[in-house]
Computed example of a mutant assay.
Amino acid sequence: MSSGDNRTIVVIDDNDDVRDFLTLIFEGEGYKVLPVEEAETALVMIKRLRPALITLDIELPRVDGLQLLESLKSDEDTMSIPVVILSAKRKSLRDFRATKADWIIEKPFDLKDLQLAINTLIP
């Protein structure tokens, strides 16, 4: 088991454009980015690599983002990895605040909000 990679961010979103945009932004900041479109693959990758941060969309195929978040935050190996929820589900944002997410950003998001989250959550 890896002790964690403080320069890797896993981007989980089923939208190709969002994954590509976030990858471009994070790589520009010097991070290695692993874009994933569904939760099952992401969970295996995260457990193996223990990245510095995860961005997580709620609307994912098969297993939704909240289920994945619950799995991550209830596992000793992954519970300390910061998770930033990126969601367009405005009505549900209040409910997301009750989750174990470390940061919540509404889509469409301001790049400054995302950079603040990253700079705050990655030591």
Rank of each mutant, 00 (worst) to 15 (best):
K89G: 04
L22S: 10
E106P: 03
D102T: 04
T78C: 09
T99L: 04
R94S: 12
I104M: 08
M45Y: 09
I105V: 12
G65A: 11
R48P: 00
P82D: 09
R48Q: 14
M1S: 13
R62F: 15
T78H: 07
K73P: 04
T99V: 07
Y31S: 08
P61K: 14
D57T: 05
K91M: 01
K73L: 10
L72V: 09
A42V: 06
L60G: 02
D95M: 08
L72E: 01
K91W: 00
D64T: 10
K73A: 05
L72I: 15
L72A: 09
A88C: 06
P61V: 12
T99S: 15
L34K: 12
T120K: 15
E106V: 03
I46K: 03
G30N: 09
S71H: 07
P35T: 15
F96P: 00
D13S: 05
L86P: 01
F96N: 00
I105T: 09
L69P: 05
M1W: 05
A98Y: 12
A98M: 10
A39N: 08
L24I: 11
D16N: 13
G65N: 08
F96E: 00
E76D: 11
I54F: 01
D17W: 11
E59C: 08
Q115H: 14
A88P: 00
T23E: 15
P82I: 09
S92M: 13
K47I: 05
F26S: 05
R19E: 08
P35K: 15
L86S: 05
V84K: 01
E76M: 06
L111T: 12
V63L: 12
I54C: 03
R48Y: 09
D110F: 02
G4E: 00
P123M: 10
N119S: 12
V63C: 04
V33T: 13
S74Q: 12
A101I: 02
P123G: 13
S3R: 04
D113S: 11
